[in-house]
Nucleic acid binder design. Structure first.
Lengths: 325, 325
DNA sequence: TTGTAAGCGTTATCAG
DNA sequence: CTGATAACGCTTACAA
């Protein structure tokens, strides 16, 4: 079913149908006839023809790189909410671990003429972004810092700093930090550095802190801590780069000390405020981020970029709340 | 940058460029010239023009209705994996609670000429599906049963049945079941009915079981169980329709009985095998589903539909594994 | 207000 | 093997 067929049925021109759809001059009489014809035929206009003609899609592409699931859905919800309200559509692509998957997803979005692209927690592969620069498609990066690029992210450093310094540690405290590894910049170095800086502030030098590297999943946290405790050393605090890792840490600690809460058992801290963890192991110190807010801010930035009312590149850092202390 | 411009630069016709891209007859010499021109200009072909011309997009739309996050990402990963391998693209839309959001998402996919649509855990709004039937776009429904439609789902009834009957309950056991409410068919009635049937099999009639309705989140599970326990009754088992609810239940039980594990404390069961819950509260009885497998099966079904080699409507039910017993 | 017609970037047909 | 050309469905000058 096409424009023209509907027009014929309504006894008007195809231009009139187009005007009906997009709100142009039209007599009430024709308006009704066209409405009836559309209703009757179940006509659905072709977005592709429109985009081809208009050279823009009023759609923003969103590339979700495999990460913490609730982060992804939270940020996405915020993005869509703002974009829809601003009259834009969203087109998502979920990218796993496969080689080139991110490049392919971005490329295919470009082919479909998205007007802007939002990259969520993807490690910035430089070559990929050139693609969009060349095409003058604005980019917003979420969850990562990128030099001289529009990005929205959380203050992982500050959050870890505050968490560490509010733990009540003294100079004799025995602390371990379970790092998420360098694959995830925000989980990795930012949190680790902030944590160490926070401890230093309360008098604990970096040398006194044991840092080991895990993955970012429950299992990886579990094995890292199991290995750590097998050494025979005792810790007052074991801090983890994510709540999932913290869950694994708790399991390892229980296996070592038994189920009762003894004084010598290390305290565990996490990152992310996972509701299940808080309910079952809580309250434990962790950090809460507002993912939806993050999506909204990113969308706002994108819409500003799209509307052209933007002076220069902006890097926005969102706050946090330390909970469970 | 267009087809024609590239052709001009390479000194060939636009048809040759098209053939280059899609693998048609072409001399080696021209092939090289075209490759060079594309490289030089950074030409990206217009998918919209191609779709317009071809009247198909080789793309499957996937509508994700707000639900358990890890279910969504797992199923999506499986879907994409199979679809990509079969030469199709995927276009996702995430749909929250907003009015008409699902309709809008589906409509917009239709406008973009997706070749098929997969609906994940969306409550089946009948009117929406007619849209696609009219357009002859095949539909696959994931996570819900729908009469005489192609669907892939888990055997929630069977899983709950097995879980219940392997709990070791006797005729004098005091059991409570926390339902997720009717908004979610698979979480709701299927699991509840299976659970009750499983208990009946081991000799426990339905009247002996207290069923209350919660939500499907941690908090809702918490409040439901808190209220339940406030009545003063004792339970041997409190089974929950989801792992998140189970986490809330555990919190409520701890508040009632204290942190030590006493004999009279109710055991808790969940559904979904959430890794954080298993690490921290486990092992507790729960059910494991393979979400990625589910996505793969749905994609397989869709590709069969798309290729036209399909006899009739199929409803596929996937198995489960009861764990933590 | 309304209709005609050009053009958006592809692909496929068809004649060389 | 190759190139001209029509057509896909839509929007928008432009003319009426």
């Amino acid at each position: 079913m096409t424009n023209k067929e509907v027009a014929e049925l309504a006894g008007v021109s195809s231009a009139a149908v187009s005007r009906f759809l997009n709100g142009g001059y039209l007599s009430e009489e024709k308006r009704e006839r066209i409405a009836a014809a559309i209703e009757q035929t179940g006509y659905v206009p072709s977005a592709n023809a429109r985009i081809l003609r208009m050279k823009k899609s009023d759609t923003v592409g969103i590339v979700l790189t495999k990460s913490d699931d609730s982060t992804l859905t939270g940020v996405t919800a915020g993005l869509e909410k703002y974009l829809f309200a601003a009259g834009y559509g969203a087109s998502l692509a979920y990218v796993g671990d496969e080689a080139n998957a991110d490049f392919n997803a971005m490329r295919s979005m470009l082919e479909r003429q998205i007007d802007g692209i939002v990259l969520i927690s993807s490690a910035p592969v430089p070559g990929n972004l050139e693609l969009f620069e060349r095409a003058r498609v604005p980019i917003v990066i979420v969850g990562q810092h990128a030099r001289n690029r529009n990005c929205v992210r959380f203050d992982n450093f500050g959050a870890a700093y505050d968490l560490a310094s509010s733990l009540g540690c003294t100079m004799t405290s025995r602390i371990a930090y379970i790092d998420a590894g360098k694959r995830y910049r925000s989980f990795g170095s930012d949190r680790r550095k902030g944590f160490l800086a926070g401890l230093e502030r309360v008098g604990l030098p970096e040398q006194n802190i044991t840092v080991v590297t895990g993955g970012f999943s429950v299992d990886e946290g579990y094995y890292a801590v199991k290995k750590l405790l097998a050494s025979g050393n005792e810790y007052d605090v074991i801090s983890c780069a994510t709540d999932a890792m913290a869950a694994g840490a708790i399991k390892a600690i229980r296996e070592r000390y038994g189920n009762t809460r003894r004084a010598k058992m290390p305290r565990v801290t996490g990152f992310g405020n996972d509701p299940i963890l808080q309910a079952v192991a809580g309250p434990i110190p962790t950090v809460r981020f507002d993912y939806e807010e993050c999506g909204i801010k990113a969308a706002e930035m994108m819409v500003d970029l799209l509307k052209g009312n933007v002076k220069s590149v902006a890097s926005m850092v969102l706050g946090y709340k330390v909970v469970g202390i």
